[in-house]
């Protein structure tokens, strides 16, 4: 469930088709994932899931799997 919602958020923030987001998406392979959009992504994830992502985690969320793990921890 969280998986598809994260993909939708990433698709919207990075302005790429939903089907281009997958488990291996990361700052290495999504060209639009720059530092500015990264902050937008954090805000969008916080809004979507109603959570507050700790400052020390913000820099770590550099790929889909890490985002999913962190969101799953925060929404428990």
């Amino acid at each position: 469930m969280n998986n598809s919602r994260i993909k939708q958020v990433m698709s919207a923030v990075f302005e790429v088709p939903l089907d281009s987001i997958n488990e291996n998406s990361s700052t290495d392979n999504l060209e639009n994932w720059d530092s500015l959009r990264h902050l937008n992504l954090i805000l969008a994830l916080e809004e979507e899931f109603g959570v507050s992502i700790p400052d020390e985690e913000v820099g770590n969320l550099v790929n889909f799997k890490l985002i999913e793990l962190t969101i799953n921890e925060l929404v428990k």
């Binding site: 290495d28 770590n60 550099v62 790929n63 890490l66 793990l69 962190t70 921890e73």
Partner: peptide, 15 residues
């Protein structure tokens, strides 16, 4: 923890 492994891999230049 899986998260530590993922973070370590993500922070490693060879990924």
């Amino acid at each position: 923890p899986e998260k530590i492994k993922l973070m370590t891999a993500a922070q490693t230049p060879l990924r």
